[in-house]
């Protein structure tokens, strides 16, 4: 048996530390006669929104990317990554586990594929070159966000969403083109965003960007039950679980690197001011989510999905989207 696998961003730790070893070493060692060819969607020049569409058409066997990239074709998928609700990895994992049956159905129906795993990117936190002390201070500021729901949230908060390419964010922060920008704490550290920003808010304004690994459904069905079993067990225990297990520590390390509070294994620590969310912030965020952002999503996705979300993810985190 052979598998053609398309990984997520080749430059990011999830690919280098987990995807690559898993698909090229761990899995071939665990399954007999399994050959794996691995490339990544950025190396193929694929549009980020195309990864699952082409997976469903059988252009390759296995694809993985940020679920949020695919919401153009499946608005109901936005429910997997609601920002701000999960402030730690454990809660994020609970949310993902609760959402898994929904995600499985979405991938089955929309993308003709079978979900194997859902792993986290580091939470998307806020870098500001502006004096802020709470979420409310973002009002009136220019913020670089990624993802539709985050942008909608910022709009509701009274901030202005600005579109800037990742590589141009340092310049944009320095010149005041944007006041704040959202990205993973680790990416922000390695890209030197701390040189041009002063305040770090660890509220996951951009969510956890879950990366979904899925296999073309026809391919999946053509595999022997033993091989299916091996692949599923291996990917859960050797890829998904370890990726989640290190997520919380990784965040703590990255925050230490950015603020200088604690040990920084990655290099010299920076000295950004840490802004922690107050209970009022969390309250306010939930209020905006429940009253504006999530009902809007409900309109995009349809009442059936709102119901499913309330019964699963909503149940876990104690949020109920009012029926519109």
């Amino acid at each position: 048996e052979s598998l053609n696998v398309v990984g997520s961003w080749s430059s990011l730790p999830l690919h280098q530390q987990y995807e690559q070893p898993f698909w090229t070493e761990t899995l071939p060692a665990a399954a007999d006669d399994l050959e794996v060819a691995l490339t990544t969607h950025d190396q193929m020049g694929l549009g980020t929104g195309d990864v699952y569409t082409l997976l469903g058409q059988g252009v390759y066997d296995v694809g993985m990317t940020v679920a949020d990239y695919a919401v153009a074709d499946a608005p109901e998928l936005e429910g997997l990554d609601v920002p701000l609700i999960a402030t730690d990895a454990a809660t994020a994992k609970q949310m993902v586990d609760a959402a898994r049956p929904m995600v499985t159905d979405i991938y089955h129906d929309r993308f003709n594929s079978h979900v194997l795993a859902i792993a986290p990117y580091p939470p998307q936190v806020v870098f500001c070159n502006h004096d802020i002390s709470s979420l409310a201070d973002l009002e009136g500021l220019k913020v670089r966000a990624s993802g539709r729901m985050t942008a909608k949230f910022l709009e509701a908060l009274g901030a202005e969403g600005i579109n800037v390419a990742f590589s141009e964010v340092p310049g944009a922060l320095q010149k005041g083109v944007v006041d704040c920008a959202v990205t993973g704490a680790g990416s922000g550290y390695s890209a030197g965003w701390w040189e041009v920003s002063t305040h770090l808010m660890t509220l996951p304004l951009g969510g956890w960007d879950p990366v979904v690994t899925a296999m073309n459904l026809d391919k999946w069905n053509s595999l022997s039950p033993e091989l299916q079993e091996t692949i599923q067990t291996q990917i859960t225990t050797e890829f998904e679980d370890p990726a989640w297990a290190t997520a919380q520590d990784a965040l703590a390390n990255d925050v230490a690197c950015l603020t200088g509070n604690g040990d920084c294994p990655a290099g010299d620590p920076a000295s950004m001011t840490l802004v922690e969310a107050t209970p009022e912030d969390t309250e306010r965020a939930k209020e905006i989510l429940v009253n504006e952002v999530l009902p809007e999503w409900g309109e995009r996705a349809g009442a059936e999905w709102v119901q499913r979300w309330n019964d699963s993810v909503g149940e876990v985190v104690g949020v109920t989207i009012p029926a519109s």
């Binding site: 053609n4 020049g45 694929l46 549009g47 929104g49 195309d50 082409l54 059988g58 252009v59």
Partner: peptide
């Protein structure tokens, strides 16, 4: 390659 790469052509033309 055994894969139907041609099916990706339209997406490639659009995204590039």
């Amino acid at each position: 390659t055994p894969f139907p790469l041609l099916r990706g052509l339209g997406n490639l033309v659009w995204s590039s």
